[in-house]
Amino acid sequence: MALSPSTAQQTRVACLQFEPLVGEKQRNLDASVRLIEAAAAEGARLMVLPELCNSGYVFETREEAFSLAEAVPGGPSCATWIAVAQRLGVTLVAGIAERDGNALYNAAVVIGPDGYIGTFRKVHLWNAENLFFEPGNLGFPVFNTPHGRIGVAICYDIWFPETFRIQALKGADIVCVPTNWVPIPGQAPGREAMATILTMAAAHSNSMFIACADRVGTERGQLFEGQSLVVGCTGWPVAGPASRVAEEIVIADVDLGEARRSRNWNAFNQVLRDRRTDVYSEMLGSGQTPGWY
């Protein structure tokens, strides 16, 4: 039986924005644990960390990327995150360079109080990532957790509407986005990151929550945008955007069930049911199976 608005459970979501340093895995891992503990102390139970947050991002060679990558979930970073998630009773979505045999993936792990839940591999590779990583081959899984159904995307994935639509159709309540946003050509100085606008549009057009955790700083000459945020299912930010330059924990209390309740916009329109599947395929040719929405 569906919960009424008065009895619906709130979930406190946190995006953990910080500056990883390339190659300094233990330092980065320690920073992530420190922020996880701080967010948990503020009551957060679902947390998102940046893309490649334990290794850094701007690799110079594939050999460097390979040396910093780990098995998932058997590597030391996952072991650390599993231990802290169990100790604090939280769920984490964290970016990591995954080594699978000789293949490398820009990945994100989903970890809960009971341990490892699953992996997402970045589907759309950005710029020099194509030199180091294989394109993701796991599609767009949706993970069942005590908080609700969680989808995952990584950075450039959000430029593709299919990323969010497929996950909405599979029943995702929230999409967690580990990311390393960079300035986009044509962006005027001081303007908000294009990614924040894309996130708001995707949340609105799919009636879902989206939580984006970006990094800050400049790494090997590459500037990152910060501006982590949590967007509500109506498309408006409910926390953030964060600073462009500072470490920050962005926190929002959300009722993930509202993502489904609010899809009926009026007496006639429901954003997912109104799709013209006589004109285009229901699952956009993804081959995946629709869920309850």
Rank of each mutant, 00 (worst) to 15 (best):
T80W: 01
Q288A: 11
G190L: 12
L223D: 08
F160S: 11
M194T: 09
N28S: 08
A259W: 07
G139T: 03
P5R: 06
F59R: 01
H147V: 01
V123D: 08
E192D: 12
A103I: 00
V230L: 10
R263P: 07
P290K: 10
Y280N: 08
G186M: 08
N264L: 13
V48K: 05
A83M: 00
F133E: 05
E258T: 11
I117R: 13
E63L: 05
R260P: 00
L52V: 11
G232H: 10
P141R: 01
C53S: 14
V22F: 00
V245C: 02
L223N: 03
C212D: 12
P76S: 12
V271T: 15
A103C: 02
S77V: 14
W159L: 13
F268I: 13
T80N: 05
F209D: 03
G136Q: 05
S6T: 08
F140A: 08
T199N: 09
C53R: 01
P237D: 07
A246Y: 10
E63P: 01
L29N: 10
S32M: 15
A65S: 12
E98R: 02
E63R: 09
T145R: 01
A71W: 00
G151F: 02
R12N: 05
P241F: 04
F224C: 02
I117V: 15
A85R: 00
V84Y: 02
A128T: 14
V182P: 00
G287D: 11
E63W: 00
W265C: 08
I150R: 03
W159M: 12
S243Q: 07
G232M: 10
S262C: 12
G115Q: 12
R165K: 12
P20F: 05
G74F: 06
A44N: 08
I184G: 00
M200I: 00
A193K: 03
L169F: 07
D30V: 09
E134Y: 01
A97T: 11
A85W: 00
L49K: 08
R12H: 07
W181Q: 03
L21R: 15
I36W: 06
V177I: 15
G151E: 04
Q222R: 13
V109M: 15
D173A: 11
P237L: 09
A195L: 02
N269H: 14
I251Y: 01
E51P: 00
E225G: 00
I36L: 11
L284N: 07
R12E: 05
P161S: 11
D253M: 09
S67T: 04
R62I: 02
D114F: 07
L125D: 09
F132P: 04
F160Q: 13
A69F: 01
E42G: 09
G136L: 10
E63M: 02
Q270E: 15
A2I: 06
V110Y: 11
K122S: 04
F132L: 11
A8I: 04
V231W: 08
N102D: 15
G217V: 07
Y280A: 13
